[in-house]
Design a protein around this nucleic acid. Sequence first.
RNA 1: GGCUCCUUAGCUCAACUGGAUAGAGCAGCUGCCUUCUAAGCAGCAGGUUUCAGGUUCGAGUCCUGAAGGAGUCACCA
Length: 587
Amino acid sequence: MEILELITENVAAFLKAEYQAEGPAPKIESTNPNFKGDFTVVVFPYLRISKSNPEATANAMGTYLVEHLDEISGYNVVKGFLNLELADAFWVNCFEELHPKPTEIPAIGKGQKVVVEYSSPNTNKPLHLGHIRNNVLGYSFCQILDANGYDVVKNNLVNDRGIHICKSMLAWQKYGDGETPESSGIKGDHLVGKYYVRFDQEYKKQIESLKNDGQSEEDAKNNAPLILEARKMLQDWEKGNSEVISLWETMNSWVYEGFDQTYATLGVSFDKVYYESDTYLLGKDIVKGGLESGVFYQKEDGSVWVDLTDEGLDHKILLRADGTSVYMTQDIGTAELKYSDFKMDQSIYVVGNEQDYHFKVLQLILKKLGRPHWEGLHHLSYGMVDLPSGKMKSREGTVVDADDLMAEMVQTAKTQTEELGKTEGMSKAELEELYHTLGIGALKYFLLKVDAKKRMLFDPQESIDFQGNTGPFIQYTYARIQSVLRAAENADFNLVSSLETEEKALIRLFTEYPQVVNDSARDFNPSIVANHAYELAKAYNKFYHQCSILGAKEEETKNFRLALSRTCGAILQHACGLLGMSMPERM
RNA sequence: GGCUCCUUAGCUCAACUGGAUAGAGCAGCUGCCUUCUAAGCAGCAGGUUUCAGGUUCGAGUCCUGAAGGAGUCACCA
């Protein structure tokens, strides 16, 4: 905001005029609500210059600022804090300037291309709540980058190959009896997930039996017939065995159909999809190249490794002795492919923090290989969603299924809406849309209001709230604003000369919004936008109760308050759009 | 065991990156719908910011140590 620059300049001028000295730029903060004022300058850093006590220094500075800046109407001093009071006219001017374009964001990303990889599902099981956090976070962050002027490519890397995929394929082959989504009525991804779980159950049985025969735990895990068969299947797959490939294609197509449905319900989308089956060979080639150039080394058994001990890390395998590739191999290949496709300035990976080490290693490897894109790699590392019982594990069935959860949320929205009974006259289709908007909105906001870096807890016993700091609260505020605007005759725009505290609070939050969107992009953190939207909704409801809009005594006041409402609605809608939430006109 | 991260009200989370008397929501209690949507508003209660030191005018925030928890160190992804 310009006012902050003005204050900064005038503090410097004050130091020069008063003490013939230069000092650090002032720390200007919002005044603590317990004190009178709008902005606060902390004067402690200037005591060295003033050689006086905090109060005297602050008073001298305050006097100077009031004299030189029309915007500042007064000041007060508490200890070393100079609280500056800004004139109502200043805030009214702010509103006049911002109101035609309240959601215009400084384009800090202009000219920069960013590929954001998120979702990245495995095709051996359906999505769960952890994946929802990833998807919601990734999608939202793409919207935020876009709002900041970045050229964004939303990218999904599908984990469609590997030993884990072979496990569900093998189990289906052995125990499936030809079951299909059509024959069973089970959604494709869930059907395949069923066999992934089945594999694990049978595998465990075999391990137990081998242990009873006297094998060690580790030997049993390596010698169980099922795991040997799965490994064989992976090798056959890499060799292009037609029977295996055909089974793989069939089962993957079931999964994709299921995922498409889940993505559609969740409201996320992608500009570009990569499949690891298409990128791992490129990865292998690059690893072989690195071996030839001496960046990597080979062990006697034929496996290929990278030595990262100089960087304080470990040795890391890049190709197995049997020649098949590992996770890292694929990621090297995909990184290369992305760069040749997009020549991006930044490559962002939305992946859980359990892979912090993996991405550290990936970046170092790309650097060692001299790839130009190593530097723009950024891991948007987010915390796991834990249950009260601990971590979610697909194989053990302790997951909150994505499809189930979304359906529950929509159902809860329906129940709550019907209880309140405010939807008279809405068609069935409109109602369905409303329930979806509210249910999914509640879910997304629940996941996005928490700092992405932090792990979070989800208790399936307690349903996600629709009151308080929630998505529906913000949606409600928006619907309320729309209701007022609908009831208003098309009013002229005009300004007023003095403000209620609730009006001032709203304008202040309006002015902060563009900076909030910038900060959110810079910090890789959508929760900053979410929290600001909540603050704004809260401030509006307070205003709504305290100040009559349509019933205002003066026509000017009414028009002004309508303009405040319109602006507030626009920002709420924009902010929630960045979070991937839609807004109802009525609820 | 090595490394990384976390610990704020009964519960879930904030705290503008070192500023004032640590804030919200939920749960609990009390008021407010004949007036623009009560999914709302106002209020009460709830805290030694895990503990012990240190740095500083000032520490939830920075440094050291301790306790508890999570992740990772896989030829899983």
